[in-house]
Computed example of a mutant assay.
Amino acid sequence: MGERKLWSGEPVGGNPFALPRGPLGVAAGWVLARANRRQQAEILEALAPGHYRSVLEVGCGPGVLLDLLASAPGVEEVAGVDPSRQMVSMARRRNAAALRAGRLRVHPGSAGATGEPDAAFDLVVTVNTVAMWPSLDDSLAELYRVLRPGGRAAVSWHGASSRFALTDEEDARVLAALRRRFGAAERRELGSAVLFEARR
């Protein structure tokens, strides 16, 4: 992220991990698939996705969590969106069987514009994307829009032990923005991540 001021409305710029593009973006996708696997497994356990029929992952990257979600018992529909066309392609290749079976679909989209219909999902999850959203409030409004009444929003970021961890002020801003949009929200520390949760 460099010196970029969070949630300033600025684009993410040339960081290959923020918006993977071209050959360097493909390499970044392989790194992300390895580096985030432990955190994604923790998120999956914390969310107990079998309680949700339809799930959207925002910023699905190379599709590791999509694979776990599409394989979870009780989950009937999984969708993934990512602003990087390279990541959409990688996620589709990783999850080719689920795509063919009609259990999964993946397409370009962002936290601020998922391209999904209103009130379509029981669970919306995003891992390690919140600090790269140009607008915190606009993106949370989009997550709220695509959730069904009673649906759950789960926003995860690197934990306190990571060099990418949010500052205390940034952490508080995420929680406050969720509470403004959803009315109530909670924050949990997991082994390698922080998880912010709210229900519509």
Rank of each mutant, 00 (worst) to 15 (best):
G2Y: 01
G2P: 00
E3T: 04
E3F: 01
E3Y: 00
L6W: 02
W7N: 04
P11D: 01
V12E: 05
G13S: 00
N15G: 02
P16C: 01
F17P: 11
A18H: 08
A18G: 15
R21S: 14
G22S: 08
L24Y: 05
G25K: 03
A28V: 10
W30T: 07
L32E: 11
A33E: 15
A35T: 04
N36T: 06
R38P: 00
R38K: 04
Q39V: 06
Q40C: 10
Q40W: 12
E42T: 07
E42Y: 08
L44N: 01
L44C: 04
A46E: 07
A46W: 10
A46T: 07
P49I: 01
P49F: 09
H51L: 15
R53A: 15
R53F: 08
S54M: 05
L56F: 04
C60S: 12
C60P: 01
V64W: 11
L66W: 09
D67V: 00
L68A: 14
V75M: 08
E76W: 09
P83L: 04
R85A: 14
R85I: 10
Q86S: 13
Q86I: 04
Q86M: 06
M87T: 00
V88F: 06
S89M: 13
S89D: 14
R92N: 03
A96D: 13
A98S: 12
G102I: 04
L104I: 08
R105L: 11
P108Y: 01
S110P: 02
S110L: 02
S110Y: 02
G112D: 13
G115N: 06
G115S: 09
D118L: 00
A119R: 13
F121K: 03
V124S: 13
V125M: 13
T126V: 02
T126H: 12
V127E: 06
V130F: 01
A131P: 00
M132T: 12
S135W: 11
L140C: 03
L140H: 00
A141K: 07
E142R: 07
Y144W: 15
R145K: 02
V146S: 10
V146G: 09
L147N: 06
R148W: 03
G150W: 06
S156N: 10
S156V: 15
W157G: 11
W157S: 14
H158K: 09
H158P: 01
G159W: 05
A160K: 10
S161L: 07
F164V: 00
L166D: 12
T167V: 00
D168C: 09
E169G: 08
E170S: 11
A172D: 15
A172E: 15
R173G: 10
R173A: 13
V174H: 12
A177H: 12
L178Y: 13
R179W: 06
G183F: 11
G183P: 10
A184H: 06
E186T: 15
R187Q: 15
S192C: 05
S192P: 00
A193I: 04
A193Y: 08
V194Q: 15
V194T: 15
L195K: 11
E197H: 02
